[in-house]
Design a binder for these strands. Structure first.
Lengths: 256, 256
DNA sequence: GAGTGGTCTAGACCACGAC
DNA sequence: TCGTGGTCTAGACCACTCG
């Protein structure tokens, strides 16, 4: 007999997990039903269900009513952040997200949900150098991958620079806001020389789960990115929510 | 009456979550006991426990036997990655981790668990430019924060460069391996000009949970970092596991 | 010792999906 | 229609912590 120090539901979870990690149960494959687990391990369905719940919390398994639980597929899109990359894409007039996604053979899209002037939230105020609660322009967008929502991206812009510009209009800006910032005819007329990107990783809240269709056990990256111009002013703060089952991050850092 | 479309355990979870997010239940505070929830909501303890389990899976709550469930504290240490930073710390002879942690008023430490020559794992082989299974030197370390394990860091090094050097000895290398790589008297004698850092975020496996003391509902970042020298050769691959409840990431990207 | 969470049993009803 | 998972009840025993 195996030493049964661990409770039954963990033993069941352990064995299923091994099958998944060795590839015996491939991504997309069906797990044994809770009833068959109940029989196989001589326990109740409640306990079998708890074992499956463990694997869902680990992000290895997804399930929904009426269907068999299945092994979750692995992440797909790489989000690549490098200085030269940004510069090249600015020149080409494509957004970073679109370029990355297309390079990986998928169909990107984005939708502008809302553009509004709002009191500045604290994490943004810190970075943008305005007072908390001061008015800022917020552009709220959702990025799509093959038609499915895949990122929520809110852009924040100082009113003193962007009031009355295309940033305030609920319409795509050709080449993105970065292009407008660097446009020699635009409201800023300065080059962006630096991005600072902060990643905080946590489990999503139910609102985020719903908005992004995140399955159980999938972490969320909250990415706060500020763009600084040559004069040192922060002209944009992006606040993104990125589900970690569909993305990996790559940063390229050159050392002087 | 509230429309009870959502099941009772979710309603309980919702109310507790609100209390946590508004700060009414501060980090470290005790949650109501499962028995008191059972009474308050007129249900069974099983259901109350499930509500608490939801919050644990969301990483908002931690619990253990005999003690009240409590609100989880927030992350602390920032891991800052920038080119100039690396260069400065190389000059000062301190490691990045140590510098970051000390700057934030905590006591860093690291322990070398093992140094061994092993068959190269696939993700490392890709990056190091050696065949999968070819021998490589692996330095396995654990980083500590105030005495608690906080990161697992495995460094991989090509044997042709580092066999017979300090990299093979189970002892700290003054200034770190980077210093040895750039040492004009060392085995490589080239400057590191670039880091490429890949982050994959997922929930930890039980082995990782145990090794790092990760509470439920806390994601894990697996960071694969390669260091490239001026000649283009990758001379080091670091494979780290970083619990996301104790760290946030910051990358600074300069755009040419 | 009293109270806490961890885990289990043995049922039940329901919503949903596949056939 | 039948099998699936989603959820619940009403108990129970245990290990642990705290006062």
């Amino acid at each position: 007999m195996p030493h049964d120090k661990r409770p039954p539901y963990q033993r069941i979870a352990d064995e299923l997990r091994s099958s998944i990690l060795t590839g015996e149960l491939a991504p997309g494959a069906k797990l044994p039903s809770e009833n068959s687990l109940k029989v196989r391990y001589g326990t109740t369905r409640t306990t079998a269900a708890k074992a499956v719940a463990v694997l869902k919390a680990e992000g290895l398994v997804v399930s929904s009513q009426g269907k068999s639980a299945t092994v979750r597929p692995r992440p797909t899109v790489q989000l690549l952040t490098t200085g030269p990359n940004f510069r090249r894409r600015r020149a080409e007039g494509v957004s970073n997200f679109n370029a990355e996604v297309e390079a990986q053979g998928l169909k990107p899209d984005q939708r502008i949900l809302k553009v509004e002037t709002v009191p500045c939230p604290p994490e943004v105020a810190d970075r943008l150098g305005v007072g908390e609660g001061d008015p800022v322009i917020a552009r709220r967008r959702v990025f799509l991958l093959d038609g499915e929502p895949t990122q929520l991206v809110d852009g924040y812009y100082p009113v003193d620079l962007f009031q009355g510009t295309a940033v305030e209009r609920i319409r795509r800006i050709p080449g993105g806001v970065s292009a407008l910032i660097e446009d020699p005819e635009g409201p800023v007329r300065e080059r962006i020389v630096q991005f600072v990107e902060d990643l905080e990783i946590r489990m999503p809240l139910p609102v985020e789960t719903e908005a992004l269709g995140i399955p159980q056990g999938v972490p969320l990256a909250r990415v706060l990115r500020m763009a600084r111009t040559r004069s040192g002013r922060v002209v944009e703060v992006l606040d993104s929510r990125v589900p970690c089952d569909r993305h990996v991050f790559r940063y390229v850092i050159d050392t002087p």
